[in-house]
Simulated assay, not measured.
Amino acid sequence: MKPTGNDVAGLIARSSPAARRRDAETLTALMQEITGREPQTWGTIIGFGSCHYRYPTGTEGDSPLLGFAPRRAATTIYLFEGTDAHADDLARLGPHTTGVGCLYLSDLEQVDLTVLRGILEHSLAWAEAGGDEGAAVTVTG
């Protein structure tokens, strides 16, 4: 995956329903503050920074350090180190669902933003520290 250079504001404006647009604006500001990096599009993902990852299986690629996608059903937040690494925080977050490496939020106003900030800060720190035995991460931007 590579940055596509499309307009971030345009991607947010096209998001639906209205709650997804509102949440995308909030997450963009939050992730920009946490990372100190400008948002950029990676297809339909809004990402911050960039890195190269490699799993022990040999699978590798490029990805934002932090990123989310404002999907119709829910906003998807991508967590490199997986959701299990955040089990205690997720128990305090508020309404959400998870996949192996994805956190799904249907309404950001119903979650504890302080807890979410902690999850995002931990995820960024994990990636910037180079990952672990489950995935090697090299920051590239």
Score class of each variant (00 low, 15 high):
1 M>Y: 09
1 M>R: 13
3 P>Q: 04
4 T>I: 07
4 T>N: 14
5 G>D: 11
6 N>M: 11
6 N>R: 13
7 D>H: 08
7 D>A: 13
8 V>Q: 09
8 V>S: 12
9 A>D: 06
9 A>I: 04
10 G>D: 07
10 G>L: 10
10 G>N: 06
11 L>M: 12
12 I>W: 01
12 I>E: 01
13 A>D: 07
14 R>C: 07
18 A>I: 05
20 R>Q: 14
21 R>Q: 09
21 R>L: 00
22 R>D: 00
23 D>L: 00
24 A>E: 01
26 T>V: 14
27 L>I: 02
27 L>Y: 03
28 T>D: 08
29 A>D: 14
30 L>R: 02
30 L>A: 08
30 L>I: 09
30 L>E: 07
31 M>W: 10
31 M>P: 09
31 M>L: 15
33 E>D: 15
35 T>N: 15
35 T>A: 15
36 G>Q: 03
38 E>Y: 04
40 Q>T: 15
40 Q>M: 06
42 W>V: 08
43 G>N: 04
44 T>M: 14
48 F>N: 07
49 G>R: 13
49 G>A: 08
51 C>V: 05
52 H>V: 13
52 H>S: 12
54 R>Q: 13
55 Y>T: 12
59 T>M: 11
61 G>F: 03
62 D>I: 08
67 G>H: 00
67 G>Y: 00
69 A>I: 08
70 P>A: 02
71 R>P: 05
71 R>C: 11
72 R>C: 04
73 A>G: 05
73 A>R: 00
74 A>V: 09
75 T>I: 03
75 T>W: 01
76 T>W: 10
80 F>R: 14
80 F>G: 09
81 E>D: 12
82 G>E: 01
83 T>Q: 02
84 D>E: 14
86 H>Q: 03
87 A>C: 04
88 D>A: 15
89 D>E: 12
90 L>V: 03
92 R>K: 14
92 R>T: 10
94 G>A: 03
94 G>S: 03
96 H>M: 10
99 G>H: 10
100 V>Y: 06
100 V>D: 14
101 G>D: 10
102 C>D: 03
103 L>Y: 08
105 L>V: 12
105 L>H: 05
106 S>N: 10
106 S>I: 10
107 D>H: 01
109 E>Q: 14
109 E>R: 11
109 E>M: 01
111 V>T: 14
111 V>L: 06
113 L>I: 08
117 R>K: 11
118 G>P: 01
120 L>S: 02
121 E>V: 13
121 E>W: 04
124 L>R: 13
125 A>C: 06
126 W>A: 07
127 A>V: 12
129 A>S: 15
129 A>W: 08
130 G>K: 01
131 G>H: 11
131 G>P: 11
133 E>R: 15
136 A>K: 15
136 A>C: 06
137 V>E: 01
141 G>H: 12
141 G>T: 10
141 G>I: 13
